[in-house]
Amino acid sequence: MAPYVDKVFSSPGEHSGAGLTLGLAMFALQIYGDFAGYSDIARGVSRTFGIELMENFRQPYFATDISSFWRRWHISLSTWLRDYLYIPLGGNRGSTWFVYRNLILAMVLGGLWHGAAWTFVAWGGLHGLTLALHKAWATYWSKSDDAPWRKTFLCPVNWALTMTTVMLAWVFFRAPDFETAYQFLSGLASWQTRQTSRAAIGAPLLAFAGGLLLMLGIDIPQAVTNNQTIMLRWPVLLRGLAYAALILILIVFRSEADVPFIYFQF
């Protein structure tokens, strides 16, 4: 996935709206696989030395609101931000606007933690803003009638809204500068169509579909059972098949170039 993502983000003006969407969705999968995998490797290695590290990801793309997303994504950073920035800044104490300010400020600083670039500030700011909006919405919502049918009906809508926000924020996170981010977003907004060969779009689409299936295959059983080690309870044959498939995927689809972990740089 990485080569296609690199291509799309290096020259967003040369891609169609569909190509940009695919590139963005691929980046979302790439960074999740990259960082969650990286964290799991760290956890596994630590465990062999008898050190138990905290869980860092808990199916973040299943979140139905932005606040839940941050309870599932990069948990070590979000809890650190909460404990060492948000709470010292005042946390939930004080006026409503003061709380919103704290949220935005904590997330902007969280963005800056990723690097000294304005794009990270924008990414953090966008998340802070949506967290504040969600807090306002939740405050309003808790006062209203919380009928179960409304919850069921709104669940897919909430999920779509949350994912749209997360995806749009990823543009700022991945783009090297504001100009590229602007080009990317205007490309998405104008939704231009371009003539592309079947193989040019088909191969990345297939890679995305494969990555998505892989993610769902691991995350759904974990989310449904609320058990991160559910795979160890699968029947032996299924487990063996899963291990073999994962190893083959690693071999067959390995990149020709050295692709370092994204979070290696942070």
Binding site: L232, W234, V236, L237, R239, G240, L241, A242, Y243, A244, I247
Partner: peptide, 9 residues
């Protein structure tokens, strides 16, 4: 056991 099955596959 899962690892052994994977190895065989």
């Amino acid at each position: 056991y899962g690892t052994i099955v994977a190895f065989e596959l």
